[in-house]
Structures are given as structure tokens and as C-alpha cells.
Design a protein around this nucleic acid. Structure first.
Length: 197
DNA sequence: TGCAAACCATAAC
DNA sequence: GTTATGGTTTGCA
């Protein structure tokens, strides 16, 4: 059985969908309707599910974790993510994205260099990221370090990145299967933001 | 700057 | 099969 669950922490609603296999979908928003909509549309029509009013222990744990990420904290997320139903390329991109640490950024282009395909295809995966913000798609920006897009609104993306600022100063690489991914301090983007305000 | 063309996986027809 | 659609990039005026 698939379970969907919503919970409000502070001003933000968090939502999770999960089964015995693990996490299927996560999201958040200040608008509870949006969260509920996203949760429901992530579930295939023919699949039976129930919406719980009382979050299970698992759901609570996950939501607490989502909240910590939202707050810009550096947390280990080792929940089982169900990705069997996703295309192989999508899984590769999500996996690479999840390797970007707090305080750093990747660009659509750098990810495409690491996993193959093109920047635009990476953008497509980001747009449909089922695990917001566990898979930190907010840490992926354009090649000129302007923000690019964000499903939950650019404002939110900007705020998340500001909270994740860690004072790093130089680019780095993280290893992934078959190659490496170039990452950059979030400051690279935040500097750009100041030029507009 | 701004615009056009190349680019690439997916979903929908 | 084909087409439309992006959270992109790059090159060139």
C-alpha cells in the first residue's frame, strides 16, 4: 500500500509518499494545496493509496530531515529511494546531483559532462525531480552562475542557497561512478544575486 | 546584450 | 516512429 502524508513545520508544509519499499516522492511548499496536488499527481491513477492524518514514524523521520535541509543544515539522508520506475538516465542525473555537498553548486553543463547527455536533458530531470529537496536540485545553476529555474520558485531556490553558504572559496571535484563532477562554492552564485539588488 | 541554432532525454500522440 | 518541450549552451553580430 502506498501512503501519502502532509505535515506543517513552522510556515512550511512538507509532503511524502512512500511504500514498504521506501520513499517514492517528497516535496514542500508554503501552500498546502500545492503540496497535496504534487503528492497526488505523483501517484499513478490505478494505484491504491491512502492519505494519513497521523504520520507514521517513518514519515516523521523523513519530514524532520526535509525540514533540516530546508533550514540549510548538513544532514545525512540515507532513506531508501524507490527509483525502479524511473528511466536509467534520470537515475544517473539524480544520483550525481545528490553528491553535491552543502555549500557547493554544480551547473547543468557540469553534470551533463559527468553523466553524459546534454545540459538541457539535465534540466529536464531537475524539473521533474521526485525527491525535493533530498536530491538537491536547488544546487544546480546555469553555466554563468545565475540561478536558472526552480519548480518551487526562484525565491525559494535563492533562500535555500543563502542558508547553505559555508564560506568555501575554490572549486572542487567529487568522484562518481565512471568520472568526476566539478562543483563550485555557492558564493559564485550569491555574488551574482547581489548585482540585481 | 540579445538572438539563433545546436543539443538531448522524455512524454505524449 | 514522430513531435513538442524544456530549470541549457555557445557562438556571433
Amino acid at each position: 500500500m502506498i501512503e501519502a502524508c502532509l505535515e506543517k513545520i513552522g510556515k512550511v508544509w512538507f509532503g511524502v509518499v512512500f511504500s514498504e519499499q521506501g520513499l517514492l516522492y517528497t516535496t514542500f511548499s508554503s501552500d498546502s494545496k500545492k503540496v497535496l496536488n504534487c503528492l497526488l499527481s505523483s501517484i499513478p491513477f490505478s494505484t491504491p493509496f491512502q492519505v494519513t492524518s497521523q504520520p507514521s514514524t517513518f514519515a516523521k523521520t523523513v519530514i524532520a530531515c526535509l525540514n533540516n535541509i530546508y533550514d540549510g543544515k548538513d544532514v545525512e539522508t540515507s532513506f531508501p529511494l524507490v527509483t525502479d520506475h524511473l528511466p536509467a538516465y534520470t537515475r544517473k542525473v539524480l544520483n550525481a546531483t545528490s553528491l553535491i555537498p552543502v555549500g557547493y553548486l554544480a551547473t547543468y553543463g557540469s553534470i551533463s559532462e559527468a553523466v553524459g547527455g546534454g545540459p538541457r536533458a539535465v534540466g529536464n530531470v531537475m524539473a521533474k525531480n521526485p525527491f525535493v529537496p533530498i536530491v538537491p536540485c536547488h544546487r544546480v545553476v546555469k553555466s554563468d552562475f545565475t540561478l536558472g529555474g526552480y519548480g518551487l520558485g526562484l525565491q525559494v531556490k535563492r533562500e535555500l542557497l543563502i542558508r547553505e553558504k559555508r564560506g568555501y572559496t575554490s572549486p572542487r571535484e567529487v568522484k562518481l561512478y565512471g568520472g568526476s563532477l566539478r562543483i563550485f562554492p555557492v558564493e559564485y552564485s550569491l555574488i551574482k544575486l547581489n548585482q540585481f539588488t
